[in-house]
Design a protein around this nucleic acid. Structure first.
Lengths: 154, 154
DNA sequence: AAGATGGGTTCCAAAAGGGAACCTGTCAAG
DNA sequence: CTTGACAGGTTCCCTTTTGGAACCCATCTT
């Protein structure tokens, strides 16, 4: 299977990965959530090859996850900012970070904490059911075909 | 930067991606959460090259995300099951799936729905603050260095 | 005129991936 | 007792993607 074909799979995970499932893309997005916006900032903080970075930024922009916005004319310079669609990926980054906090941190503890602005505490994100509000684990849910299941090779 | 060096980055996202950040790994895990366990099942449902699948399963097993368990002797056959560490990745898969449901689904809607066993409703996972219980968005949190920040090249 | 800056593009060698064929135990059938 | 099937890999070859470094280009600054 080719990587670009993933977006036509009848699976939202696969479709999402067709956009962000690349080696570097999620790290670029991590930098975005930390406030990074400029090409050179991404390069310096990630150590990514420049042409790979250029390619990822282009693809993320085409996908509507980032937008290029000029921050000065003459010489024209553009920076990359998260769109709403991009900010909607925050839960993915948070859950990735929390798994790393739990399973990949050294004895000192996690490298980065998250403070909830509203309540002021260091927090963890907890995934709860939108309907009943209870926390949900892997075994608490049952998958069921949805309306978009088995699209007839559209 | 080399891919394997990611686990020594002072960032939990990077460390997590050093385990699951590969093109195929998250799709293998999706299959695990859907109940797939055997080599041939993974191959058939993913269309992945066999040696790549063998490599990913080996790496996930070494990382403690999957475990190999014999389901018959003579001939010895083994299957791959999620460990607790692996099941802890469920929030990552759920948030990926939900982003895809929102932004990548066709007009028909998402291909797969999730039913919460406890309350019986079709649900979305909502990320809430562990301290105050409020839903958290990208702009509601402020990162702050944690105890494991800037490890002195341990 | 000689840098410096920001944001890329080009080139080459090395690594990873796709596809198909081949290998290894074990059992079942003829 | 040879042939086939099954599960789970491994090998081989060729294409695509990376990593790394060099080069390009428009615009200020000295």
């Amino acid at each position: 299977m080719r990587w670009e074909d993933l977006d036509s799979e009848a699976c939202s995970v696969a479709r999402t990965l067709s956009v962000v499932g690349d080696r570097w893309t999620l790290l670029v997005l991590r930098e975005c959530f930390l406030g990074r916006r400029r090409f050179e900032e991404f390069e310096a903080s990630l150590g990514i090859a420049r042409h790979v970075l250029a390619d990822r930024l282009k693809k993320l922009t085409e996908a509507g996850v980032l937008s290029r916005i000029a921050y000065q004319e003459r010489p024209r310079r553009e920076e990359y900012r998260l769109t709403d669609k991009g900010r909607a990926l925050n839960p993915v980054l948070m859950t990735l970070a929390q798994w790393g906090d739990t399973y990949m941190a050294g004895p000192e503890g996690p490298p980065l904490l998250r403070v909830h602005n509203a309540c002021g505490h260091v927090m963890q994100g907890v995934l709860v059911c939108s309907e009943c509000g209870e926390a949900v684990g892997a075994r608490d849910i049952t998958p069921k075909p949805g309306p978009g299941a088995a699209r007839p090779s559209s």
